[in-house]
């Protein structure tokens, strides 16, 4: 295994390129780990037919594509897999699995490997987004600010737009029919974007509510690859909605 300097000259982008592999013995520890953990991993089923690579927009980035990824797994090149930055080019979109004749979900192993990276070696602000997510929301604005922004923008709209004087943006309304989650980007950066949504819900006349806590529907802990954190945030969201007793959870995407 040798390092090949990348065109950009940026050290982080040097890629490990295989020159000679000794398969005696063949120790594919990562593959065995995944196979025990995920019963229908089917890594070995791969026919190396290249269909996944032909359908993957992230092919030939960092010298990697889904077929090579599975091949490195099968041939036990675990260090290369742990270190490749391709983990952050693959968006785990499952387009490879969609048409793969053997139905191999390459993204699932990318997710596992991302989770295996020690937190300090993960891309800085991706990990930070997850930490913030665990506290309250992905941008880290205090819950009080969220409540204040919603109220402020609501009042401003009602003041400037006569036909919307009875517009509402309820928060923590127990027993509402619909619970609405809210991506943290809008209240943090573009609060006025939320008004369109309220107007629509108002026009339809449905009984909905935000929650003042755990209101952010996003979950960057999925992207950072941490099942425990991802579960923690999702569980918090579920508890909030059940506490409000809303039968339907609307995702604003």
């Amino acid at each position: 295994m040798r390092l090949q300097p990348s065109a950009t000259g940026n050290f982080l982008h040097w890629r490990y390129v295989m020159t000679e592999i000794d398969l005696s013995p063949l120790r594919a520890d990562l593959k065995k780990l995944f196979q025990e953990k995920l019963p229908n991993a089917r890594i070995d089923y791969c026919l190396t037919c290249g269909l996944c690579a032909s359908g993957c927009p992230a092919s030939d980035i960092e010298g990697m594509d889904p077929r090579k990824f599975i091949r490195y797994l099968a041939l036990g090149q675990d260090d290369l897999l742990r270190n490749t930055n391709w983990l952050y080019s693959c968006s785990i979109c499952q387009r490879c699995e969609y048409a793969c004749p053997m139905g191999i979900n390459v993204g699932r192993f990318v997710y596992e490997l991302k989770g295996m990276r020690p937190k300090e070696l993960r891309p800085k602000n991706l990990q930070k987004s997850c930490e913030l997510q665990k506290e309250s929301n992905s941008t880290g604005i205090p819950n009080a600010d969220f409540v204040w922004v919603v109220g402020d923008v609501l009042e401003e709209t009602k003041a400037n737009e006569p036909e919307w004087t009875d517009l509402t943006a309820p928060i923590d309304k127990v027993g509402a029919q619909f619970y609405l989650n809210q991506n943290a980007k809008e209240p943090t950066v573009e609060p006025e974007e939320m008004v369109f949504l309220w107007k629509i819900l108002h026009a339809v006349g449905i009984d909905w509510t935000y929650s003042s806590e755990w209101w952010d529907g996003a979950n960057y802990c999925l992207f950072s690859g941490d099942p425990k954190d991802w579960e923690y945030v999702t569980r918090k969201q579920a508890e909030t909605v059940d506490a409000l007793g809303c039968p339907t959870y609307i995702n604003t995407e």
């Binding site: 290249g50 269909l51 032909s54 993957c56 092919s59 030939d60 077929r67 048409a99």
Partner: peptide
Amino acid sequence: ARVHSIIPSPDNQGNLKIRYVNEQG
């Protein structure tokens, strides 16, 4: 090489565009 999708060619009518990866990737 197997092919994931067949899509209509954007520039000439009726033609089909195929993206494939040869064995060297």
